[in-house]
Structures are given as C-alpha cells and as structure tokens.
Design a protein around this nucleic acid. Structure first.
Length: 650
DNA sequence: ACCGCAGTAAAAA
DNA sequence: GTATTTTTTTACTGCGGT
C-alpha cells in the first residue's frame, strides 16, 4: 500500500509537497452553488487539517489507493489494445451510437425542479431570525445543507459540522426536522401536480415534470422555453431537460455541471485513463470506452456524450429494499452490539409492517472502527417481517463476525414478496395461496398482503437529503397560500402529499402563485444529470392567510398546547406556521364533519378513497390491486395517524 | 451458459 | 475536547449448482 502511495500519485499531487492538502479530495471540497468567491485553497487546507490523522482520513487514503490501482490497471488494459482491436471497437461504438441516437425523443418537454438549500430555506421560514445568518442544517457530524450565507465560508452539504464550524465559527446549527420538510415538500408537489399529475419526485426538493401537454395548451414550444430568458408564463420552471443540444458538449463534467451517475471515482477514471473531461470527448474516445467497459456502462457514457437519457416516462417503481443503520461510538462489546441489533430489527420490522412488506433476503451491514464497510447477507426460503425473525437471522450473521470493533450496524431487507409474480419462482407463494393460507410466520394475515404498496410505492422516497451542487439558480418568489377550501394534511411519511381533491371539489386552486424563471440556455443539462437550477423559498407574505381567513370560524377547534402541539392529535407545529396551523385546524374540522356524516355508514370509504386517490396520484396508469376492504375494527386507523410516521426517534 | 446468491463499490440526495 | 450520516439503487464479480 505504501508503495502505491508513492508511485501512483499523479503529477498534480505529490503528498510530500509543501501543500499536502491539495491531494485530499472529498465530495464536500467541491464548489457548490453560491460558493463562487470562496477561497478554495483555504477550505481545502482546513478540511485537510481537521481530517488528517483520523481513522476516517486513513480510510479515505486507503480508498484513494484502490482507486489509483484501478486506474493503473485500466491504463495497462488500454495500452494492450492493438490497432485491429481499436478499429473493431470503433466500429462497434459507431454502430451503438447510431442505435442510441435513434432513441432520441424530442417530442416531450421536461423540466427539472430543484430547490435551493431546501431544508435551510424551510428552517428560515419557520424561524425568520435565521435570515441573513450563516446557518446549516445537520449535526456536528454531518450537514444536510447550508444556506448561502454559510456557503460563502465554504460550508456545504455533506460536510461534517465540526469542520464547518472551523470554517465559519459563527455558523448556526439547526437539527433536521423532516416533518417540516415533508410538509413543505408536499406543498410544492401539490403545485407540480397541476402541471404534471404524474410528475416524478426524486427527493423532497427535486422533481421531474413532463410539461409537454401544458406547453401545447399554452402554445409554447420547447425551443422557446429553452431560449427564453424572461419569466415564463407557466409560473413554474427550472429546467428544460429534453432539448439540450450542443451546448453541453464543451462543458466539463465536474466544474460546469455535473452528470448524474458520474461521481468522484468515475470522474477520475475518465480523466486519468482516457483523458476525458467533456461530453464531446466521450464520443471521441468511444472506442476505448466500449473496449474497457461493459455494455451497460459504455451505453451510459455514450448517452452522456450524445446528450440522451431519461426519455422514458418515469414509472413509479416498486421499492426493492428497506434498510436502517446507525452510527455509534465504536465498540467491540458483544452484548452492546446485540442490543443495538435488536433495536435495528425492531425498527425495521415496524417499518416493514407499516408498508405491509415481507422479505426473504436479510443483509447485515457493518462498519468497523477503521471505517471498513462489510455486508453479510442471507436468503431465506420463506418471507419474514417480524422483529423476532429478523433478529434471529441477523444475530446469526453478526455472531460470525466476532471479535470485531464496530462503529455502525445496519439491517436491510430485500426480495420482497411481489403481488404479481408468476409461478415461475418455486419459492414464491402466490397471493391467492397466501390469502387462503394466511401467513405462518407473520403475526397477522394482513402483514404480508401487498396492500401497503398502495400507500408506500416510493414515488416519493423516504429520504435523507444533501443537496449537491447546483448552478446558481434564479430566485423565484412564491406565495404558498393554502387554498382555504382544500385540505392539506401534513404528511411526515412522505408518501401521500396530494389528495386535496377527494373530499372537496376544488379542481384548480388559483391562488398559489409560483413565479418562474426559465434558466438560461447555457445551463442546460441532460435528463439524467443532477440538479441544474434552484428555486428558493421565500417567506410567504404574512397575512396572506390571516385571522380573517375563511376558516376563522373554526379556529378554536384546535388548541396549541405549549403553543406548539395540537391538542387533538399531538402534531407539532411552531407558532410561525400560521397557514399550516390553519390547515391543520381545517383538517380536524373536516375530520369531524366526516365523522358525523359517516355515523350511518362506516369510516372506511374515506380511507379507501384516500388510498385510491393516493395511488392515482402517484402511479402512472398502473393497475393496482385494490386494498382489501374488510379490516378488523382495530385496523381502522384514524386518518391522520395513518399517515404519520412515528419512528423518528433514535 | 445461465441462475441465484453473496459481497463490494459507486452514486445520489 | 470530541467528531465524517442515512437510505436506496445499480452494477459487477465470483462462486457453486444445474
């Protein structure tokens, strides 16, 4: 290892030089939007000095070593290619390029919405005193995002808080509060939905919208949209994804914009093995790419070169795995580790039951005290979901690892029982069989029904968030007034944010105004690229929804305990969340009305409606299994708690 | 040759 | 003074069974 350290280091970085920090690269030393004037050298030096000598640092060096080795191997492979080899691959590449080119579809217009420093913006919204001060969301260990004031100091997402504090001593730390982000994310999605009911949300602050229809309706072409620098009448924009054309060719990956799917390692490989730094060069070196990479990887690179990607309509995909993991101070204490494993198993089981999932592959993830990551997996003949089953098998996996000192453990479950799997899989029980037999391993028969997928289909993934570099976005302002006759339920579970139209008929609320700037053409990216432009949340004008609002009659329905907690359901909403409180109150009112109304019937139709609406909203024309409508009374979850996730504490 | 499984790694937000 | 997350997906590799 020591050998590769000396020999493999390139010309631009020599570890023994007087500026050792120049060779230490992390994701968070790269510039992000709002970091243009930052003294990069200084940031790098501080990051290096804070990291140097730590276990983490050592591991990073180790990884760096592997990467250098990999690059070296590929170089050798490249050199071994003979003339005939190269012309063979050249031919192959050209053929493939034509095939890929043929898939180009310019008939659809997409925009990609990415909100600037979303968590930070939300936090500022709920605590206006943060305005104008350097602030970061996260902990001393890790930051989720930083506002623009903080970015001026080089502080950014994915940076450990203690380093951030060194860079900016007055930095204010705000802990993450996903309840809040989910809520606001829900509000944005409500708007997205009006432009594309099938929009694809990729995280709380990012979404892809197919605006072809709406553009047609309003007589706007993609080219106009793309070249337009004026505020677009659609009131909603960030990026026209499909028609990006030649502009991107000359841009380099990392600096000017980033291509989604090309991270630190791939970037280095492309640069050091092939000398590729731009999209254009992807095509020039296509023969080498085809020679050294698999079909799927080569295709990906060629698509990048061609500016292709993401033409397929985003289909909401079924979740494939579910996991949880926790970091703790490293220990080799077996009893302690088993204890932690038990907690993980219980947490995981609870989440699985919430979504009605059963899986048969269990993976134990470990991170040793030296940051080495290991996984140990086990595939069972039958499906499990109970914490007892999970723990039983997980313990077995853990046991084999002792003695070991760990700083992290995690559990993942995968290979879920599917609803429409063919009889080809012998280990697969069919749904009908299942319904007839019930489930021997589960505690109740409901547990393994795929009914949860209605609610949980992860169009909106449960996510943690770091917002990675964006080009500087233009600020848009908006007024996120909640329509008074609409019901917006805070949805911490991030599963179903838009279901306003089911109880009341309010097809098109007119009063949520979102002002948009179309991004300039040189900020074009490609569909699978990451974020390109930001939208920032401004504080809604106070008084937009004030005491004189239409729902004020019922304002007293909800009391705010300690000026924070809802007296009826315990939902927490700070005083500054005026509109949300109003909505929340409205929600309880609606609930009460519903309740009264349904005394003659039963409460289920409402819940059913919700899940149907839910799946309609989130699934593009997919035929979904209807939820079974014969729950026991105890299964009659109150509507709000149905959507509330309770396992936030750890 | 193909499949399922286990393990590692990269990437994204 | 300490301290570098969490969740999900995808791809590739290697192994053993059929």
């Amino acid at each position: 290892m020591a050998k590769s350290e000396v020999s493999a280091t390139g010309d631009n970085a020599s570890p023994s030089s007087s500026r050792p920090w120049q060779s230490y690269h992390t994701v968070y030393t790269n510039a992000k939007a709002g970091m243009e004037g930052v003294d990069k050298e200084k940031v790098q030096r501080i990051v290096y000095e804070m990291s140097k000598g730590s276990k983490y640092f050592e591991n990073e060096e180790r990884k760096e070593g592997y990467m250098k080795q990999k690059i070296e191997n590929m170089r050798v492979q490249c050199l071994k290619l003979t003339k005939p080899d190269i012309s063979h691959y050249q031919e192959l590449a050209e053929k493939r390029i034509l095939e890929l080119e043929a898939t180009r579809d310019l008939s659809r217009i997409w925009i990609h919405v990415d909100m600037d420093a979303f968590y930070a913006a939300v936090e500022t919204l709920s605590n206006p005193s943060l305005q104008g001060k350097p602030m970061a969301v996260g902990t001393l260990s890790m930051l989720s995002t930083a506002n623009y004031e903080a970015r001026k100091f080089g502080v950014r997402a994915a940076m450990p808080g203690f380093i951030a504090r060194k860079l900016c001593p007055e930095l204010i730390f705000v802990p993450t509060d996903f309840k809040k982000y989910n809520h606001y994310s829900g509000l944005t999605r409500k708007i997205f939905q009006k432009y594309d009911p099938n929009f694809l949300a990729t995280s709380l602050d990012e979404a892809y919208l197919d605006i072809t229809r709406i553009c047609k309706e309003r007589g706007v072409t993609g080219a106009e949209l793309k070249s337009s620098e004026k505020v677009f009448t659609m009131r909603l924009a960030s990026h026209v994804v499909q028609e990006w054309l030649q502009i991107a060719y000359s841009l380099s990956f990392r600096c000017v914009f980033q291509i989604g799917g090309i991270g630190k390692v791939t970037e280095n490989i492309l640069k050091d093995v092939f000398g590729i730094t731009t999209c254009e060069e992807m095509l020039q070196k296509s023969s080498f790419l085809c020679a050294l990479f698999s079909r799927s990887s080569a295709d990906f690179f060629l698509c990048v070169g061609l500016g292709l990607g993401g033409t397929d309509t985003p289909e909401t995909k079924m979740r494939k795995s579910m996991s949880n993991e926790r970091t703790f101070s490293a220990t080799g204490d077996e009893t302690l580790l088993y204890k932690k494993l038990e907690e993980l198993a219980e947490m995981l089981s609870a989440e699985m039951e919430q979504e009605g999932l059963c899986g048969r592959t269990l993976t134990l993830k470990l991170k040793t005290a030296s940051f080495e990551v290991r996984t140990r997996a086990l595939t069972l003949p039958n499906y499990i979901s109970s914490s007892e089953d999970i723990l039983k098998h997980a313990s077995k996996l853990l046991k084999a690892e002792f003695p070991v000192s760990l700083r992290l453990m995690g559990l993942r479950i995968s290979q879920f029982m599917e609803e429409n799997v063919g009889p080809s899989d012998p280990t697969q029980r069919t749904l009908s069989k299942f319904i007839v037999q019930g489930d021997a391993s589960g505690k109740n028969a409901d547990e393994c029904l795929p009914l949860g997928s209605d609610v949980s289909d992860n169009a909106f993934t449960h996510d943690t968030h770091t917002d990675f570099p964006t080009n500087s976005g233009e600020t848009i302002s908006w007024d996120l007034r909640a329509p008074t006759d609409n019901q917006q339920i805070s949805d911490p579970n991030d599963r179903c944010c838009i279901y306003s139209e089911e109880l009341e008929k309010c097809p098109e609320p007119q009063n949520d105004e979102l002002e948009i700037n179309v991004c300039k053409s040189n900020e074009e990216g490609i569909p699978f690229s990451g974020q390109l432009e930001g939208i920032s949340l401004d504080k809604p004008k106070s008084g937009a929804y004030d005491k004189t609002g239409s729902c004020s009659d019922h304002k007293d329905l909800v009391l705010w305990l300690d000026d924070y907690k809802c007296s009826l359901c315990g939902t927490e909403l700070p005083p500054s969340f005026v509109e949300e409180r109003q909505e929340h109150s409205d929600f309880h009112l609606a609930e009460r009305l519903q309740d009264e109304e349904s005394k003659d019937h039963h409460r289920w139709p409402t819940l059913k409606q919700r899940s149907v609406q839910n799946s309609d909203t989130q699934n593009r024309g997919r035929q979904r299994k209807k939820k079974k409508l014969c729950p026991t009374p105890t299964k009659c979850t109150p509507i709000d708690s149905f959507f509330v996730k309770t396992s936030q504490n750890f």
